[in-house]
Design a binder for these strands. Sequence first.
DNA 1: CAATATTTTGCAACCGATTGCACTAGGACT
DNA 2: AGTCCTAGTGCAATCGGTTGCAAAATATTG
Lengths: 335, 335
Amino acid sequence: MATIKDVAKLAKVSPSTASRAMHDNPAISEKTKARVRKAMQTLHYAPDFNAQSLANKRSNAIGVILPVDHHEIFTNPFFLKVLRGISEACYHAQAMVNLATGSSQAELLHSIDIMVTQGMIRRFIVLYSEQNDPILLKLRQLDAQYVMIGKPYQLVNETPYVDNDNILAGSDAAQFLVDHGHKNICFVYNDLKKMVQNDRMLGYQRVMMENGLLINSFELPAQEYPGGRQLVIQYLTQHPEITAFETVDDMLGLRIQQVLRSAKMVTDRQVSIIGFNNSVYSEAAHPALTSVEVFPRRLGNEAAKIAVSLQMSENLSTKLIVPHQIIERHSVATV
Amino acid sequence: MATIKDVAKLAKVSPSTASRAMHDNPAISEKTKARVRKAMQTLHYAPDFNAQSLANKRSNAIGVILPVDHHEIFTNPFFLKVLRGISEACYHAQAMVNLATGSSQAELLHSIDIMVTQGMIRRFIVLYSEQNDPILLKLRQLDAQYVMIGKPYQLVNETPYVDNDNILAGSDAAQFLVDHGHKNICFVYNDLKKMVQNDRMLGYQRVMMENGLLINSFELPAQEYPGGRQLVIQYLTQHPEITAFETVDDMLGLRIQQVLRSAKMVTDRQVSIIGFNNSVYSEAAHPALTSVEVFPRRLGNEAAKIAVSLQMSENLSTKLIVPHQIIERHSVATV
DNA sequence: CAATATTTTGCAACCGATTGCACTAGGACT
DNA sequence: AGTCCTAGTGCAATCGGTTGCAAAATATTG
């Protein structure tokens, strides 16, 4: 591998000049810059990231923070798609992608500590937004920069983020049901501490109110929680008027479908469902789930683009809204 | 952050001695080692990864190579679970996790090139095994080490890998069907260039032959391929004798379920299905899919443990087989 | 044309580790 | 006591970059 010294020698300049030329330092004349560039070309020069990071006290890598390992999360293809988008953008920006996960919050915090203090990673992408998240606090304490996927709870103006308009998405989904003649619609969520879920619910509520309809909501606990099934059955029998569900994730919709079928309610009751995230599996469901596509890959891609362009002491924060789209399938019937 | 010089000063030794003490160099007396260790403690010393990588010409990071971006892959929670396992092991080994993806093979190759030549990453985990994979060739050319998840096609003895016993898993699944009285069983795959699929099919074939049954197989193309549905219908009508499917991934099973239902064949024909990978979604299917759990997180974890312990010029290769387990649900009926 | 201003460049230190080799101290041996 | 080992340690170079500051080269001005 050619080093900067080789380039310097070939271009007949000193390494310092070469370095400055490479970074387009205005102190270097256009003539020498050209010479240096040519030398780089012929030697196939590529900088050593570790040397750079050492000298700069700042790595070229982007840290990616996944939410603390809940079974549910590590099973949701959403994150993998986001990762793919991040990876793509980083590839084009010549940045490395560094993963941070943890099975507990303490572990994750520690991971991040190491990445920053020992790895000199200074830019992160946080793949979720949660209320009072200690991870963000840590990041700030360590003087690291981050962009979020999802709207932040705190420092909304100072934090760069990319998100869907989840309120609008929540509305659109609800409106879709209303347009199909549904009047008694229930919103199903999982954890309202998550901004996504909260926003979608807000959107749902708005549409219901606008149409003078009653608001119903139901918390369906995560997969592994045992009594979940029972809860659904109970809810259904106590609310015979409900004809449609808006579920914050396809997975929840799928589970409701399943309960409906197994409890033999499917025969005597027709229930429509609309979900979010458009997982492959919703296509295979029966009936195939109508779902709101949120373009996770795009979310990741844009977040990474922002992250790599983050300057050392940036103060203006970029916000970007990625559109969503209802994918109509067969789980919503007209009443 | 404390540097090695600070530690050296406090321990009243030179940086070189401190460094050697930290690496348990036998040239250093136990007495000084103890002094150095105490100094490390009191200063909360932690080495700078970039400085280390620079001096060693070898990064502490593990590169993780995902398969080239086929829609199908980036949707399969399997990989996310594997990643989780890798991340966990790396956390305990104080190693960073570096992701490599690409939307084309060229892109992925380039990514890897950069990681090795500019990032000094020398240890990789390859999350799949494919016939004649140029990625592996590249890795070897670059003189990088890798451990595979899945059995390698080439250099089987020289390559460390962790895998399920997919032949056995394939047999077990087939035997499970046979035990339930099925005689006309069809194996459904996707891409036989993938070792997993090939192995599972081999296992299936063995059981069929042992039981004097006919071998049937069927290639169901990836999700996005349009005519897929038609193909299934065609196959089903041409083979009225088939009573059970063994599908190489739950997703394929789900798709077959769906066709069966939508084509109204469900009424006049009862078909059993057993899949692999035990995705969450198979639980939500109707009927819930019986599936072979392969413990992806464990696969990743073990692979990472091997990777971090890889020496600079290791020659013995570790192989590790992770067990599998049939998760019985409701998609297999007794005939 | 000398004096000064301005642009370009290079020297040398530094980032935080690792390591070959030379040096020192102490003990064993003649 | 002098010589030779051996074990333990430190010096200084190195990895491949970046950057403050001074020096050199060139341009501008009176």
